[in-house]
């Protein structure tokens, strides 16, 4: 059976939703952060690693998540693997930012 990301010919696919939402400020940031980490100057990530981390998502989460939520998940996973950021650190930073007046 094909893995969840391997969609070609996936059974049960329905009509294509052609609504196009303009990317939000935050989606553009997520895109920019990810691509910056992959530039030849930084080389913190490689595109194949990004894909692997997206493809390894739990199938139901993969299907549920919006596009840049998958990228966020992958970047968090890879930063943890590389010892650059832990999820706990990110959780703490979220709380810290939340506590801003």
């Amino acid at each position: 059976m094909a893995r969840v990301h391997d969609r070609g010919g996936w059974p049960g696919a329905g009509p294509i939703d052609r609504f196009e939402h303009p990317l939000s400020w935050w989606e553009k940031r997520m895109d920019a952060i990810t691509t910056l980490l992959m530039t030849p100057e930084k080389r913190v990530l490689r595109v194949d690693e990004l894909r692997r981390a997206v493809e390894d998502m739990e199938p139901a989460a993969y299907e549920r998540c919006a596009y840049y939520e998958r990228w966020l998940h992958a970047v968090e996973t890879l930063m943890a693997e590389k010892g650059i950021l832990t999820r706990e650190e990110i959780d703490r930073k979220v709380k810290e930012l939340d506590a801003r007046p």
């Binding site: 930063m79 990110i90 930012l97």
Partner: peptide, 11 residues
């Protein structure tokens, strides 16, 4: 999502 993107960028 927005909070985590901001947190990741800040870190």
């Amino acid at each position: 999502f927005e909070k985590r993107v901001e947190a990741v960028q800040a870190l």
